[in-house]
Amino acid sequence: MANEQTNLENVSREKYIDFRYVKVNNEIVLSLDEAGKTVDAIKRAEKVSHIIVTVFTYIFILLLALVVVFPFYWMIITSLKQNEEINGAVQTFFPTIVMWSNYVHVFQVFDFGTYMFNTIVVAIFSTLGTLLTTILAAFAFARLRFKGRDAVFAIFLMTMMIPGEMMVISNYITVASFGWIGEGQTIFDAYLSMIVPFWTSVFYIYLLRQNFKQIPNELYLAAKVDGKSDWSFLWKVMVPLASPTLISITILKFMGTWNSYVWPNLVTSKREYRLISNGLRSSAFVDIDAGITAYGYQMAATVLVTVPLFLLFIFFRKYIMKGVGRAGIKG
């Protein structure tokens, strides 16, 4: 036993310090506030400070969460209030009389159906076009090798830095020269001018390329053995494997159309051709009796515009947050 111990001692002295055999250095100074405390006391103090920090963290977070949620809450309750109550000296945090009739009125004044239809048509077709071009381009960038690929990709990435406002002016002129804007514009022209310029997105190409690059090369060889062409490999293997990213792109694109305001406002000549954001801001929600803007009606309309987005968010939370979050991950 003793022999063993000396053995150990030798080994430990040679290779590393074994604290069992090292005397505590007299020069070690404990910090002042820990002096004279037992281990239990220090642990307890740490626990208390931890609890305090946690409580403050929660207070901080909950307060800010309240600020974040408050506009939504206010939107909903204002949409259910009477106009007198909204403009009253004392603000109530719950409507005294719940006015569902605000919504009825809004449906009569605000042409929700038309705007909704336009928005959905534009969203569907611009998303389809974007998906198609994005998949093809991402496949070429990720899988194929040809001269000039990297140069083209670099140019594409550079265009992401250009503010969209630079493009709007000339795109407006381009679309006008296609005959889609101007006198005698039909609904079909309006759709085309809102859809075609948005059929490509460099950012989504970049996103999907990163995803395609992660798909192992063995799958491609296996598909070749099975007699698949590049084309069917893309659609039968790559696309299904990248479907989460594609779903994210679809949803983000849909949301983008739902929120687009500037371009539809520019290129459409008639109110009936516009999208939901334009309709919301251009409709006058006026109380006929008082002659002033009726916030109740206005808020009811904003609720109608916001709810579909919220539903989308609830059902596709995972994809939306992933799609947005991926933007920040360096590839």
């Binding site: 974040v68 939107m75 929120n259 305001y261 919301l280 904003t302 515009v305 916001t306």
Partner: peptide, 16 residues
């Protein structure tokens, strides 16, 4: 909850 403002219509919330 903190993500909610992202999924809203900018015009609509501006009006709110």
């Amino acid at each position: 909850i903190f993500f909610l403002p992202y999924v809203t219509n900018g015009i609509a919330v501006g009006m709110v």
